[in-house]
Structure formats: structure tokens, C-alpha cells
């Protein structure tokens, strides 16, 4: 019975993936991409990788989908929404085919790792957390995660560089028009408290069970976006100092913890067991805040309204 479920799931994933890249229409492709992300998340749950499933559902399907939809809406407003002719897709198709071939080669040629690896079970008590995924992400392979958080910051910097001079200093994103007693305004008041609870819980529980800064941060970003779209909160101005501080808090705390490791003689970004628990908690909280603010700002986009000086 479970074999039938898995076989149907695999067929659905492959079918939806094919529907995403084949056929015409950008909007159609985006919708299929979101469905694909959700199905892949179910696949990760079937494999027992709940952390990855949470990240895939929140970031892969949810946030990336919203970014695509926002970009699609912008293309429409700029009058550039038409589909490119087929030859224009050829380089992307070739690149995609190349990546697929390389992954296929890696899958067949590389040795299968022991799972979960005896060294990990030995090292886990020294990591400062109970959840092995969090231990790997924030401690054993801290470099990767630190650079990921910096990449997010760089993406937002790149986006903000696209701001027109006349709009610089304005509130980020498009001005929202919401009827004060409408459906969206009500939704924007009901959902955020619950989402806030779920987001904070995911960040907090990440030390022991599936969850963590990326998953929780994405939920918190979504809470902010719903509140902003419903007009319950106004997005901040692009230059606001405290929001810039929130953007860099995660990488900064991460770097400070890394330096503390170096100062204690363990080496840069190597956390000795006596401070690992506290350091990881601080990193997780700061990282979640930065991820939430960065992702929400990425979706809202640069300020669009010309401000009068």
C-alpha cells in the first residue's frame, strides 16, 4: 500500500515537473512550480527528512512561488509580460539538461553515504543541540550556513540597487490599497497572531526537533507580508536604520560566535562545547530575524512610489 502511495507520488512529481517546463505561459509554469514544490515536500516527508520538507514547503514552494508571482505581476505592469519565442529558451534548456545529466552521473557514480553516519552520533553531544540537522547546519558546517545568510543579504542589496532615484527613501514595495472593512483586512488581522506563534515555535524548537531559523524565519516573513498586504502594517522606509540592523543581525551574530570560538582557541567558526548551546541559540534567533526581514523585503521589492522632497 505504501509502495502504491510512493509510486503515485513519484509519478505526480515527474508529471508536474514536465508540465512546469513544457507548454506555454509564464503564469501556468509558476503555478505548476508551486505545486511541484509542495509535492516534493511531501516526498521529503516520506523519506523522513522533515527539516528539508519544511524548508521546501516554506521556501521552495511558498516564498519562491510568491517571488515568481511578484516578478510576473511586475512584467505585466511594465508591458513586458509576453512569452519569449522558443529559441530564446534554448540556452536555459541546455543548461538544465546539463545539470540533470551531472546529477544523474553523481547519483550513479558517487558512493552512497552511511546514514546517518557514526561520526555524527558521536559528535552530536558536543554540538549544543539535540536535532542533528541543526547541529550540522549551525555548528559542524557553519561556513555554508554563514555564507547562505550573506547571499540572502547580497540578493536584497542587488534588488535595492534597482530603486529609482526619485523613489529612494520611500516605503518599500507598491502602495497597498485595502478596503478598511474588507475580506483582506480581516484576514490580515486573524492570521498574523497564529502565524507569529507558529514561526516563533519553529525557530525555538529547531534545537531539538525539526524546525529552525530558515523554516521559522520564512513563516515570520509570510506573517509580515500578509499584514502588509492587508494594510495592517505599513512597510518601513528603505533607509530605516533599525530595519537595516535587523537585516545584518544574523550574519553579524554568526560572525561574532565564530570569533568567540577562535578566541577560546577552538578556531574560527568552531564552537567549543561549553559555549555551543548558548551560541547556537543566539545564532538561531538572530538568523531567524534577519531571514524573516530579508525575505519579506525581497518579496515587497524596491520602493516604487516617487516621493516628493
Amino acid at each position: 500500500m505504501t509502495f502504491v502511495l510512493d509510486a503515485v507520488l513519484c509519478a505526480l512529481i515527474l508529471g508536474v515537473a514536465a508540465a512546469t517546463i513544457a507548454g506555454h505561459g509564464v503564469f501556468r509554469a509558476i503555478v505548476f512550480f508551486i505545486v511541484y514544490g509542495l509535492l516534493v515536500a511531501v516526498g521529503w516527508v516520506r523519506l523522513g527528512a522533515v527539516d528539508v520538507a519544511l524548508a521546501e514547503a516554506a521556501i521552495g514552494a511558498g516564498l519562491t512561488g510568491v517571488l515568481f508571482l511578484a516578478a510576473y505581476g511586475r512584467l505585466g505592469r511594465e508591458g513586458a509580460g509576453g512569452d519569449a519565442p522558443a529559441p530564446a529558451h534554448l540556452p536555459a534548456a541546455m543548461a538544465g539538461l546539463g545539470v540533470t545529466c551531472a546529477l544523474g552521473w553523481a547519483w550513479s557514480a558517487l558512493p552512497l553515504p552511511d546514514r546517518p553516519g557514526p561520526q555524527l552520533a558521536e559528535a552530536l553531544p558536543m554540538s549544543g543541540v539535540e536535532n542533528p540537522v541543526t547541529a550540522v547546519l549551525l555548528n559542524f558546517r557553519a561556513w555554508d550556513t554563514l555564507l547562505e545568510s550573506v547571499v540572502l543579504l547580497a540578493a536584497l542589496t542587488g534588488l535595492w540597487m534597482l530603486t529609482r532615484d526619485a523613489a529612494w527613501g520611500g516605503r518599500i514595495g507598491l502602495p497597498q490599497h485595502v478596503r478598511p472593512d474588507g475580506v483582506m483586512a480581516g484576514f490580515g488581522r486573524v492570521l498574523p497572531p497564529l502565524g507569529l506563534l507558529v514561526g516563533v515555535y519553529l525557530v525555538y524548537i529547531g534545537a531539538d526537533r525539526p524546525g529552525g531559523a530558515f523554516q521559522g524565519g520564512t513563516v515570520l516573513a509570510a506573517v509580515g507580508l500578509v499584514a502588509a498586504l492587508a494594510g495592517a502594517v505599513r512597510p518601513p522606509r528603505i533607509g530605516a536604520t533599525r530595519w537595516r540592523a535587523a537585516l545584518v543581525a544574523g550574519p553579524l551574530v554568526f560572525l561574532l560566535a565564530g570569533l568567540a570560538g577562535a578566541a577560546l582557541g577552538a578556531g574560527f567558526l568552531t564552537l567549543p562545547p561549553q559555549i555551543a548551546g548558548a551560541a547556537l541559540f543566539a545564532i538561531e534567533v538572530a538568523l531567524a530575524a534577519s531571514i524573516a526581514v530579508t525575505l519579506a523585503f525581497l518579496v515587497l521589492g524596491p520602493p516604487e512610489e516617487t516621493i516628493t522632497r
Binding site: 475580506v183 483582506m184 480581516g186 484576514f187 486573524v190 492570521l191 497564529l194
Partner: peptide, 16 residues
């Protein structure tokens, strides 16, 4: 309950 809330809101927005 959450799915009801989301579906109800989204259908209103799509209809509008």
C-alpha cells in the same frame, strides 16, 4: 479551520 479561512479569503479576492 485554517484551510477554510485561507480558501474563503482567496476565493473572495479572486472573485473581486
Amino acid at each position: 479551520a485554517l484551510a477554510l479561512l485561507a480558501a474563503g479569503t482567496v476565493s473572495q479576492l479572486v472573485a473581486r
